[in-house]
Design a binder for these strands. Structure first.
Length: 499
RNA sequence: CGGGGCGUAGCUCAGCCUGGUAGAGCGCUUGGUUUGGGACCAAGAGGUCGCAUGUUCGAAUCAUGUCGCCCCGACCA
């Protein structure tokens, strides 16, 4: 019997461990199409949870959902110079609209399109084109629209959930009358992402502007939330872009203001993707498989009936059903607690391990002996698999919400502690190579340093495979000199390796 | 697109060097023994050995080509 649910372990081979967790938890599989994944029901359930929570937050801040086409006319992409430059390399292009059988009986593309269509890598241009029509007066503003969609970016090196050719995301696109309002929107959405990451996914993040070199093509400023994975690398978990008037000017999104003057809009865009599932795995999963924060877990509590005889089965099942009903009467964080009785006909050990690998936060075993004693056996996914707590049968349903809260906060606390123990403030250029040298330091993480937004910084960090992730806004101002250019900057930035 | 590795049963792989007609473990099905735990015994199902061409009496094995996957770089949510 292997010691762990997942082989290899994180320390043995992190990338392989990641793939094995995805497989063991039945989240996704690779597909016949290179770079594309099949998201399996358990993986998709995580995405649906994310959608539900985020969508609520978007609606609460005045946004509405809409849907724009998958195909973008090639000429649209050309409208914003930097945008083209950034995305041209990774676009899938549709050039034909019909297939015909040739003499050998093979299908060949026919019906060449007058203008090729690009499969959206992002939708700024097509949405902007619509906004240009929709906006005429200052009374039409702001436009606050989000869409849930798939996008395609033809990547060289795909990695399930983290970087796939096709992925699911949401993209918000807003247009405003003033710069201040657009900037405020950009920061508001960044805050929503950060709150969602920490409060719901239990993933601590740093949020702040990124250097010019890491900016979204066509943006004036890109803000991101950055999380640390268990191998010390940073994962950009969400982005919010202040687009200034770049797209408005390129696409003529303009309006007549209160003084009858023609003005360009100020626009924003912001998004998170199925990459978050990868972040969830790499933040919380352990050597036994996935670990889900209760808030995002499709099933928060699983009841495992244990019985041998039919007689026992009847009593145990009845007890489970009562237990489920009692638990469901309780709420946690304004939602009915999600509980399932797993009565599948299979060996108890296999069944329990399946739930461990899939990350179910709480397992409750109920057998004849428990019923006789008036107890249940509780196991938390944030504790080792064999660690179980006996608890009163009648007390448990009442304390379930408390237990979920405890697991949720413990996971965040653990993730914060991990980040803290793998981060250092560094004030000398010479200490940086050693910090990121895996042979000297078993796991390089985040270095908090003073760096200017200057190409020279990226160039200096490049040999170390390190980039400036963002300059956290929540940190106190702490003026200092850039380690590479000597320019004075007002606060520290996060630098690290990244996904 | 450069450098390395690999395609044999659902999964992990052995066999290939030294050609002779396909194996193991896990999983699956059935029966039995078990039962607070990823069990044991027995029987069974399952593979044109990535694909193509060539060499040969004979190719999983040798040669050439081709397709695909994984890892490391360049690119990125």
């Amino acid at each position: 019997m292997p010691k762990h649910g997942i082989s290899p372990t994180r320390t043995e081979d992190y990338p392989e461990w990641y793939q094995q967790v995805v497989r063991a938890a039945e989240l996704a599989e690779s597909s016949p199409v290179r770079g594309c994944m099949v998201i399996k029901p358990h993986g998709f359930a995580l995405w649906e949870r994310m959608q539900a929570i985020l969508d609520g937050m978007f609606k609460a801040t005045g946004h509405k959902n809409a849907y724009f086409p998958l195909f973008i006319p090639l000429s649209y992409l050309e409208q914003e110079a930097k945008h083209v430059e950034g995305f041209a390399k990774e676009c899938a292009v549709v050039t034909h609209h019909r297939l015909e059988l040739d003499a050998d009986g093979r299908l060949v593309p026919k019906g060449k399109l007058e203008e090729p269509l690009v499969v959206r890598p992002t939708s700024e241009t097509i949405i902007g084109a619509m906004y240009a029509k929709w906006v005429q007066s200052w009374r039409d503003l702001p436009i606050l629209i989000n869409q849930w969609a798939n996008v395609v970016r033809w990547e060289m090196r795909p990695r399930v959930f983290l970087r796939t050719a096709e992925f699911l995301w949401q993209e918000g696109h807003t247009a405003h009358a003033t710069e201040a309002e657009a900037l405020q929107e950009t920061l508001q959405m960044l805050d929503i992402y950060a709150t969602f990451a920490e409060h719901d996914l239990a993933i601590p993040v740093w949020k702040g502007p990124k250097p010019a070199s890491e900016r979204f093509p066509g943006a004036v400023e890109t803000y991101s939330i950055e999380a640390m994975m268990q191998d010390g690398k940073a994962l950009q978990a969400g982005t919010s872009h202040f687009l200034g008037q770049n797209f408005a000017k390129a696409q003529n999104i303009s309006f007549t203001d209160k003084t009858s003057k023609e003005e360009y809009c100020w626009t924003t865009s912001w998004g998170v993707s199925t990459r978050l599932i990868g972040g969830l795995i790499m933040t919380h999963a352990d050597d036994d498989g996935l670990v889900l924060p209760p808030r995002i877990a499709p099933e928060q509590i699983v009841l495992l009936p244990i019985y041998r005889t039919d007689e026992d089965k009847n009593a145990v099942m009845k007890c489970c059903q009562e237990m489920r009903d009692l638990i469901e009467e309780n709420q946690w964080r304004d939602e009915k607690i999600r509980v399932r009785i797993d009565d599948r006909d299979m060996r108890g050990g296999d069944k329990a391990w399946q739930h461990i690998k899939q990350g179910v936060p709480v397992r409750v075993e109920i057998g004849p002996r428990d019923i006789a004693n008036g107890t249940v056996s509780i196991a938390r996914r944030d504790e080792p698999p064999k660690q179980k707590h006996a608890m009163s049968l009648t007390e448990f349903p009442k304390s379930a919400a408390e237990l979920l809260e405890s697991i949720q906060s413990n996971l965040l606390k653990k993730a914060v502690a991990f980040r803290e123990s793998h981060s250092s403030k560094i004030d000398s250029k010479d200490e940086i190579p050693a910090f990121f040298d895996a042979s000297q330091q078993d796991m390089p993480g985040f270095a908090y340093v003073h760096v200017a937004d200057d190409p020279a910084v990226a160039k200096a960090l490049d040999p170390l495979k390190v980039t400036v992730r963002c300059t956290p806004m929540e940190w106190e101002e702490e003026p200092g000199k850039c380690l590479f250019t000597g320019k004075t900057v007002s606060r520290r930035s996060v630098i690290s390796r990244s996904y």
